[in-house]
Design a protein around this nucleic acid. Structure first.
Lengths: 191, 191
DNA sequence: GTCTATACGGTGATAGAC
DNA sequence: GTCTATCACCGTATAGAC
């Protein structure tokens, strides 16, 4: 795998996360990634759509692996998820709540106009849901409960990141972390 | 208030909801709103930014009024909120999950580049939070609990709408409705 | 693999007539 | 209030040389 190609993908996913799909031009991607101008259509012959799909895919692999790894830090599922969410709030605060929701940024702009990217984002969300579902299963939750709770965690995280970005405040992320903890506790099979 | 001006605002908010900010051009707004071409800069001399702020503002007034009205339908706060969320899922399904998250669409694309629109979206989210907070307060929840839960509802709704749009499936909305009901029940002061 | 030049359409915005 | 003409700029994409 060439470094150039990977550099383009990483910069694209970074720019999508900060600016969204339509606001990110191919020119900006090339110039900020400090990549040869001629390489873009060499590595991504189908143009922006192909590049965007790869960028989303790359980002979600990275994020879901991070989540899965972090969730192993605490044996208890509820505590692990709570600590992860608080850690995300710390992360957001460090970068002044300027980023987050990389899938949503692409999904909202393209779901209605580009079927390929819509499907990519759909698969991305499914992938983000899995680590939570697995951890809850391992924690003794019934399969249907684990799935419903993982969907809820996925949704509330996405929403809270957007609220935090908009308000430039990590508070929404911290609030929902505590509420999800409560929900998990009163849904716990051992409760 | 002229009809032309209002038509432009309504069509703009509709297009933002479906396509986002950058994908929606002034030309499209004029042509689809069937409005005189020359009127746009007459009513909105500051251009797209001013129009966008008004469109977000209009939409959020409309939505928060709808939510507040619907929450009066059931005396019990928990049941009222649950029914409202399920109603939103029905709505989404009727339009094939093609819309929703009108604030998020603008917020994600502009929060990092346009301070005015960022603040508008921030105020919009605050406005969306209020009806839930009020209903919970009236239902006997302590002020700080009502606020935290309203923030969570706001976040989970925004996230679930995005998940539903992306998957073309109302299931995420229905799932989070049930989970929020559980959370409210086990947070209830009368429980 | 990379470069440059270029095509073509669309963007937000302005000026000046009516 | 509205229209038209026009602006400069930007977007993605392609062709052909090296």
């Amino acid at each position: 795998m060439s470094t150039t190609r990977q550099q383009i993908i990483e910069k694209t996913s970074e720019l999508f996360e900060r600016q969204g799909y339509h606001a990110t031009g191919l020119n900006q991607i090339v110039s900020e990634s400090e990549t040869p101008r001629g390489s873009l259509y060499y590595y991504f012959p189908e143009g922006k759509e192909e590049l965007a799909a790869e960028a989303v895919w790359y980002k979600v692999h990275h994020m879901s692996a991070y989540v899965r790894q972090r969730l192993t830090g605490y044996p208890d599922a509820i505590e692990a998820i709570y600590q992860l969410m608080m850690e995300m709030a710390d992360h957001a605060e460090q970068q002044h709540c300027s980023a987050g929701a990389p899938i949503a940024a692409v999904a909202l702009e393209t779901a209605g106009s580009n079927e390929r990217l819509r499907q990519t984002c759909q698969a991305a969300y499914a992938m983000m849901q899995k680590p939570f579902e697995e951890k809850l299963l391992a924690g003794g939750f019934a399969p249907d409960r684990a799935e419903a709770l993982a969907i809820t965690i996925n949704a509330v995280l996405e929403g809270a990141v957007i609220l935090s970005r908009t308000a430039r405040e990590s508070q929404p992320l911290r609030v929902v972390a505590a509420e999800i903890k409560t929900l998990l506790q009163c849904s716990s099979p051992t409760a």
